[in-house]
Design a protein around this nucleic acid. Structure first.
Length: 779
DNA sequence: CAGTGAGCGAGCTTCCGCTTGACTT
């Protein structure tokens, strides 16, 4: 039995460290926190006794704790090596308490990078658990419990059961609700942008595109300008050349990795995290939950040599990045490849894509800046004071751009023409081939993507790298927010063009406002947000976390007692909770839309037991009718006309096979129903107008498809050859198997089918064991 | 899978952060 027991937070880290420490050390993992506030009592906190927390070992940690307890008893020295931040220090303290460790034989150590030197150095410089830091964590934990467990029940009483509120999630919802209202209230304004296509008057070798320095507010002034252009002479007034440079971005943190993986590969935030987790466990990258942009000295060195080898000495430039993020704890390095010279890895397509991104970003961060030359040419118009500008950019030295360029959140609408500009001289005269004035609209604020929400949360200091993805899941699960696509709408715009001396107007169309995988608030999300804003303004204040963080810092420095800080917060907060329970009304977001012109009955919308609904008739009307609001409709914005339309469904379409055919909109979109048979409508059909002929066509189409579904069945062996969405496949014992390309599905024999199944089962097992192998070899 | 919307009023829901599998579609 080893004399030394080292406890870290993650099992992958344990494996790595064990290699460095050698035989005398046994390295184990606590798998994160081992204790938490109890839930059995009211709050898990005694608010009348200095907020004494009631900690219990979490259900899923009982086994780990039992094992660690046993090993700790057998060890001479226990080394607590959890992260050097608030949470890590608390984990160390909870281990002390729970494992009943003897302070005499317990040592607290920390290291910032996982290298042999750093770890040996840590072992030689042990300290004791920092109670101030632990107390800062207790304050954080207790505050979050108090807020979450006192405000949520208010929502159950006043809004709807099962709802939740919290310091982090409620602000995340607020961001989304406010952005939605900005978008809904947005009024686009338009202006006219003028561009010209020129060529030299003497030699017609090349063409040059340039833009007018001024935008015109309306069509009239734009048109007037074009009139002036009819008789104008154009000359080059100035050519200006300026050197410029571009700097690489710092290496990834959790939040920036989530943003780039989303922009470059369309990964969701949780997808990025689970792929990164696999890369970490296989030993390809450093820890993926970090807020630090720092790279270890070893990483800097190996990046330098990798860059020099791959691109040459002039491409390398060692850079150290300071972390600017509010509330960053910096217990880890930035996310980077374990081996900087490893340009590619084995793994799934997703793993390789994400690794590639991490490698490029880390390498680029240690490369020279790009050198550019920017050129700006000004073209004068003899009949008007405005000038045209052409901008060009020439790359003199690519530097870090050789491997990586960060993308932007706000996709610019028109690309500025970059590249080499043609050789022109001052005072050279030009001909205008065409001059166009195009109507352009101001951009509506875009809805948040998961990743852009994380970015905003990080800016506000709300949430931590380990909680960004789970927070998004929570607000979606509570029904506050949905992630969806919304189609754009067609918008007309005007274009005037001057060509060969004559002016012509065109009306063109573009699609605008398309949203893909964006976050939209639901009615309940908006209602809860409004409720919290009214009664718990301080909790959903954007500065709330930042303010309490300052106090947590004071606690960590030993300048403030944690229960005093909590007491100062709790007294007014709790009074507010009690008063709100007594005074606030039950909220259902009811809106009266007006009267139904046909019946004169009142039309209203509100949140009911199963979600938002429209109601025709007053509450005491015995014949009142209900209809659910449809996807994308909000109580806040629905019109009387739209609400009345909801009562048109379900609609009797006609009859077929002596049965009535109905059309309606369900959870999965518009459908027609005959008996208990449901058939989805196609994009071009509408449940309001679909005819019986069309309905029959759709029903028969579906029936034919269902008949064709079964290509072949071997009943005895439970094997079916089926036609699926992605083509034919084999179904057996609850699993599906691909049919090889060279095989003909209809002609497959039982033996061949069994072979296919067996072969693919083997493959599955193989890939699993390969993964396990790489994991144990590398980490 | 495609609905519901009133009501006895039981007994339940809920937070944030630190970790990794064990689950299902």
């Amino acid at each position: 039995m080893q004399e030394n027991l080292v406890i870290v937070e993650s099992p992958a880290k344990a494996k790595t460290i064990e290699k460095f420490l050698g035989k005398d050390f046994l390295v184990k993992s606590s798998f994160g926190h081992i204790r938490d506030l109890s839930k059995s009592k009211q709050l898990g906190i005694d608010v009348n006794n200095n907020f004494e927390p009631d900690y219990i070992v979490s259900e899923d940690k009982l086994k780990v704790v039992a094992e660690l307890k046993k090993l700790a008893r057998q060890a001479k020295t226990v080394w607590l090596a959890s992260d050097e931040d608030r949470e890590g220090e608390a984990i160390a303290w909870h281990l002390m308490e729970t494992l009943k460790l003897d302070p005499e034989k317990t040592k607290r150590i920390v290291f910032h990078e996982i290298t042999k030197d750093a770890i040996l150095h840590a072992v030689q410089n042990p300290r004791t658990v920092d109670m101030n830091l632990v107390n800062a964590q207790q304050a954080r934990r207790v505050l979050d419990r108090l807020v979450g467990f006192e405000v949520s029940p208010v929502l159950w009483r006043k809004v709807k059961e099962g709802l939740s509120a919290g310091r982090v999630q409620s602000v995340a919802v607020r961001l989304i609700v406010e952005r939605e209202r900005e978008a809904l209230g947005f009024q686009a304004t338009s202006s006219f942008k003028v561009s010209g296509l020129f060529e030299p008057a003497d030699e017609k070798k090349f063409k040059l595109k340039a833009e007018l320095s001024e935008k015109f507010k309306d069509e009239n002034t734009a048109q007037q300008f074009l009139e002036k252009c009819k008789t104008a002479a154009y000359t080059v007034q100035a050519i200006e050349k300026k050197p410029a440079k571009k700097m690489p971005a710092p290496p990834f943190t959790t939040s920036t990795l989530q943003q780039e993986a989303s922009r470059k590969h369309g990964f969701s935030v949780s997808q990025t995290m689970s792929v990164a987790q696999r890369l970490y466990e296989a030993g390809w990258i450093t820890y993926m939950r970090t807020d630090s942009t720092n790279l270890s000295e070893m990483a800097l060195k190996s990046a330098k040599s990798a860059i020099e080898q791959l691109f040459g000495n002039n491409y390398s430039k060692t850079r150290r990045y300071a972390t600017k993020t509010k509330g960053a704890q910096e217990a880890h390095e930035a996310i980077r490849p374990t081996y900087m010279n490893r340009t590619d890895i084995e793994g799934s397509a997703q793993e390789r894509k994400l690794y590639d991104l991490i490698w490029k970003r880390a390498i680029a961060s240690q490369m020279a800046e790009a050198q550019l030359e920017k050129t700006e040419i000004t073209i004068g118009v003899s009949t008007a004071p405005q000038t045209f500008q052409a901008c060009g950019e020439v790359l003199l030295f690519d530097g870090f751009l050789k491997v990586y360029m960060e993308t932007n959140d706000d996709e610019p609408e028109d690309q500025t023409d970059s590249g080499l500009l043609p050789p022109l001289k001052n005072n050279q005269s030009l001909n205008a081939l065409e001059i166009t004035a195009t109507e352009r609209f101001s951009q509506r604020p875009p809805r948040y993507t998961e990743a852009s929400l994380v970015k905003r949360m990080e800016e506000l200091g709300i949430g931590r790298p380990s909680t960004y993805a789970p927070t998004i899941t929570t607000i979606i699960n509570r029904g506050y927010v949905t992630k969806e696509d919304r189609p754009g709408v067609e918008r007309k715009y005007i274009q005037w063009m001057l060509q060969k001396g004559s002016l012509a107007k065109k009306i063109l169309a573009e699609i605008t406002g398309t949203e893909k995988a964006k976050l939209f608030p639901s009615d309940i999300g908006m209602l809860v947000n409004d409720f919290l804003n009214e009664y718990f303004q301080n909790i959903v204040d954007y500065g709330f976390t930042a303010n309490v963080e300052e106090e947590f810092d004071e606690i960590a420095e030993g300048k403030l007692q944690w229960h005093k800080m909590i007491d100062k917060f709790y007294q007014p907060f709790h009074t507010n909770v009690t008063e709100t329970l007594e005074t606030s009304r039950i909220m259902n977001a009811e809106r009266i839309l007006g009267q139904d012109p046909k019946t004169g009955k009142t039309v209203s919308v509100r949140i009911g037991r199963y979600g938002p609904l429209a109601q025709l008739g007053e509450a005491d009307d015995e014949k009142k009718q209900f209809a659910s609001l449809q996807k994308g409709q909000l109580i806040e914005t629905i019109t009387l006309e739209e609400a009345l339309n909801l009562f048109e469904l379900p609609r009797a379409v006609g009859s077929y096979e002596n049965k009535e055919v109905m059309a309606a909109i369900g959870r999965f979109g518009p459908y027609v129903r005959i008996g208990s048979e449901f058939v989805s409508l196609k994009k071009e059909d509408s449940p309001y107008t679909v005819t019986i002929e069309r309905a029959i066509e759709l029903i028969e189409e579906k029936r034919t498809k269902a008949r064709e579904k079964h290509i072949k069945v071997f009943e005895k062996e439970d094997i079916q050859i089926l036609n699926g969405r992605f083509g034919p496949y084999i179904a057996h014992a609850g699993n599906n198997y691909k049919i090889p390309k060279n095989a003909e599905p209809a002609k497959l024999t039982l033996e061949e089918s069994l072979e296919i199944i067996a072969a693919q089962k083997d493959k599955k097992r193989e890939t699993k064991s390969v993964k396990r192998k790489t994991a144990s070899r590398k980490s």
